[in-house]
């Protein structure tokens, strides 16, 4: 095909199909979409990182010895897997978007991955210091279904009385050696233990309405002997749920008398 023939064929094709250059805004829009989607992915990933920092910061490390033989076992059991996967997805979306910007291909993958992870951690750290991680956990705690199984596994982890772990909200004035506690299922427990003998107990913080987690053992029906008590930090929103809050208030009104089971027959005084 000679030069003129090729040119003519090309011109004919352009005219027959009525082709014209795509407008500039089309490409600008495509470019903006990639950047905006990347920015949204960065923000979402960073929000997830702020929750991870919050959950890990108050993971109950100081109670590890009472619950697990090794720190690694404790660490693996209490890692916030959902948030790690969630942030991983958005970090990948950010990486993908950066790689598909006009000049993204010029940078090696490891460098983009490094920048993306660092940016997510730094921004996530900033969100955490602004209290956003805590806010997200509280909102989810109050409303999200499967909160204890998915978003904050510490609730499920700590709610296992037979294994010596109990979590709940203090539902009576704290006496010298006992107080009442409403657990996530709404059951009421009598918690036994002398305040001055408990480890990790900041006395001023142990008060009515505070969610706590406890290491100890079941000594009788609905009675739990506490060895260590710690204020619950992530998951506080969970104890504001109406069902738990109602049970807690009912317990308060009746001094928990109506809600606690009667003492076992052997302990009853027979006149």
């Amino acid at each position: 095909m000679d030069e003129k023939e090729f040119e003519q064929k090309l011109v004919d094709k352009i005219q027959a199909d009525n082709l014209s250059p795509k407008p500039r805004w089309h490409f600008l829009l495509k470019n903006y979409v990639i950047w905006v989607a990347g920015l949204l992915a960065l923000l979402t990933g960073a929000l997830a990182v702020s929750v991870i920092i919050y959950l890990l910061r108050y993971n109950g490390w100081e109670m590890q010895e009472g619950t697990h033989k090794s720190l690694i076992e404790f660490f693996l059991l209490t890692l916030p897997y959902f948030w790690i996967v969630f942030s991983g997805i958005f970090i990948f979306i950010l990486y993908y978007n950066l790689k598909h910007t006009k000049k993204g291909y010029r940078y090696p993958a490891y460098l983009i991955v490094l920048v993306v992870i660092l940016a997510s951690i730094i921004l996530g750290g900033a969100f955490y210091s602004l209290g956003i991680g805590q806010k997200i956990d509280n909102i989810l705690g109050e409303r999200a279904p499967f909160y204890g199984q998915v978003f904050n596994r510490q609730i499920t982890f700590w709610f296992n009385p037979d294994e010596g772990r109990l979590v709940g909200i203090i539902s009576s004035e704290v006496e010298a050696d006992n107080f009442d506690l409403v657990d996530p299922s709404g059951n009421v427990w009598k918690i036994l233990g002398r305040r001055d003998e408990l480890n990790h107990l900041p006395p001023d913080f142990l008060r009515l309405g505070e969610p706590v987690n406890i290491i100890g053992s079941v000594v009788a029906e609905s009675q739990f002997k506490a060895d260590v008590i710690r204020l619950l930090v992530p998951g506080r929103g969970f104890f504001s749920r109406p069902n738990i809050r109602e049970r807690h208030e009912k317990c308060l009104r009746s001094n928990c008398q109506l809600l606690l089971p009667p003492p076992p027959p052997a302990m009853m005084i027979i006149k």
Binding site: K13, I14, L19, S20, P21, K22, P23, F27
Partner: peptide, 9 residues
Amino acid sequence: IKVYLNLND
């Protein structure tokens, strides 16, 4: 043809 269509890019 692709070049022509994408000249603005």
